[in-house]
Design a protein around this nucleic acid. Structure first.
Lengths: 332, 332
DNA sequence: CACTGTCTTGCAAACGCATGCAGGGGGAGA
DNA sequence: TCTCCCCCTGCATGCGTTTGCAAGACAGTG
């Protein structure tokens, strides 16, 4: 076992016949170094395999170049997609993503955030997670910018990037009534989520405009089994809905499955189904799910813009809700 | 804007009337501190909201408590699942996951690994990514244990955790012949992957045992569109296969879609389809995909065992390939 | 009471780097 | 050739910890 002694800037300096400072400057963009020493240093660095230690640098500058991401449901494909985009976008800016699972108890989110702060992250994005506002305060007290992704807080003032969920809900309703459906149900996600509330509010608006009421309502909590139970409850009845707006695609798949497999209903003939998100699988022919598309790309772009601005000390206002679009497929 | 000055161990020390060392020791399990000072310190720490700076600690101890994960396809649900499990398992050990996307060009994997090492990660897991062996050398030279997840290297000696892909391939073949299928095709993943080679090798073995040959073969590179093209090529012919083994579930979904939607074939009546992985969607009634299940749970468990052992300086032998199981659903 | 042994505790050095400050060297202009 | 100025460079300090070392406190024993 060879001793893997770390090669430090001092090693490079000695080999190049310069001082540590010179080495440091070579690796600090925008520092004043002559081309000659820069070359010597780079050469020595290559020979020794030297690369600056991000952690040490972080101590001095206070910038760790890492962004914490806390995420809850990785089984809903919306989030892996978001993670991929986010990570790539941040890498382009020289940042990287440290992942934290907020999987279960909503209370230990407290704990999770503490752990994150221990890593001196430069920023924090909370995806699909309820942030108590005093927690937000604590983060801001630590000087860590936090942006909520796909969630909003009552108490605004928090940086949040969201789609125009209300408009999306309205579009869903309009599409369904335009199709001539009248017995329209809704399967809700977790009711603590602003996303859910806005989507449903918009949906109700849309129905009301058409002088329709909600025919049935169940809640699926954004979880697959719960959504399926919700569907079972909703359709185990004499007069069934002829359309249902499901609060996200992930649940919609589960709902379509029980409609077809357990009730022998066909979509969209017997019942139209419309989802929300437009995750990749929505386009798969097996579901061909009509849905309200969130522009994930734009959402993460807005997220990193916000982060970068806040990190640079500028204060950044939450962008207005991002536009969504109805994508018609065969399920409605 | 309040100045968010960081609260350091010195602040706590002063408030508690002790030295920095005392504070440090309180937060270092197994250090020698009297109960009395421990209480004073903890009290002061709570009052000030002090938490040790992981980065500073990392500098001294050389342990950053972060594990780098480089991952390629997040659209294949196998990997988000794995990420979730891995992150949770590591959090339980006090580690966290720093994500790196190896998205595209296989060459910049070189670059990615360099970036990772800059963060002084304590370990590295490469999921579904081809590691050149000199790259592996460089990591080991830096003293960073690396474990390959779901991939093996020709030159063994690398730590790798894989399923028994060969056995899995064999099981797929056996199941298909047992079903009486005779014109059996294979849609391969990326041929650079050991996973692919092993699955196919096992599959061929299984066919050979039954005195059958491969009826058709196309490659889908583990990507959805490519897999669909592969399926089109394979079935746009007079005598079609009556069964196909697809190298992973993700591609299998795409294949089933084109078979049904474009060729009007029904699965499994016209053609039996069998996949590999058993991702959650495989259980969805729309696909009800018969598949070879990888025990993701066991795989990540083995991965963190390996990491922890190597970090503790023990050398750890690659575990033997983990058992897979055939899960029969309706597609075959 | 003196001595020894066991716990605690503080001191100071180290980890690897960035950066303000001041000094040195060289080029340009006269 | 001399002066001035600017560009480079080295020195030293600090970032927030951990940890070996040695000294202090205290109890127990003879």
């Amino acid at each position: 076992m060879t001793t893997p002694r770390k090669v430090t800037s001092l090693d490079v300096a000695k080999r190049a016949g310069v001082s540590r400072s010179a080495v440091s400057r070579v690796f600090t963009p925008g520092a004043s170094v002559s081309a000659r020493t820069a070359n010597k240093v780079r050469e020595a660095a290559d020979a020794l395999g030297y690369r600056p230690n991000v952690l040490a640098r972080a101590m001095l500058t206070g910038k760790s170049k890492i962004i914490g991401l806390v995420v809850a449901y990785l089984d809903n494909h919306f989030y892996p997609t978001m993670l991929e985009l986010l990570s790539e976008a941040l890498e382009r800016q020289g940042y990287h993503v440290l992942v934290f699972m907020a999987s279960h108890s909503a209370s230990d989110i407290e704990d999770v955030v503490s752990q994150i702060l221990d890593y001196q992250v430069d920023g924090l994005v909370l995806a699909s997670v309820a942030l108590s506002s005093d927690l937000a305060d604590r983060c801001r007290a630590s000087g860590v910018p936090v942006v909520l992704f796909n969630r909003m807080l009552e108490t605004d003032g928090e940086l949040a990037v969201v789609s125009d969920n209300r408009a999306g809900g309205r579009m869903a309703a309009e599409h369904l009534v335009q199709l001539g459906r009248t017995r329209i149900g809704h399967i809700a996600g977790w009711e603590g989520a602003s996303t859910q509330r806005d989507r449903e509010a918009g949906f109700m608006e849309g129905l009301r405009t058409a002088s329709l009421g909600l025919f049935a309502r169940e809640v699926g909590d954004f979880r697959l089994p719960r959504a399926q139970d919700a569907a079972r409850r909703m359709f185990d009845t004499d007069t069934r809905p002829d359309a249902v707006f499901v609060a996200n695609d992930y649940m919609a798949f589960g709902v379509m499955d029980v409609l077809r497999a357990e009730f022998g209903l066909s979509v969209p003939e017997d019942v139209a189904v419309i989802g929300f998100d437009d995750v990749p699988a929505a386009a798969w022919p097996a579901y061909a799910l009509t849905t309200i598309r969130q522009d994930t790309q734009a959402m993460v772009a807005a997220t990193v813009d916000a982060l970068m601005a806040e990190i640079d000390g500028e204060t950044f206002a939450s962008p207005s809700p991002l536009p969504v679009t109805l994508v018609k497929r065969r399920s409605a």
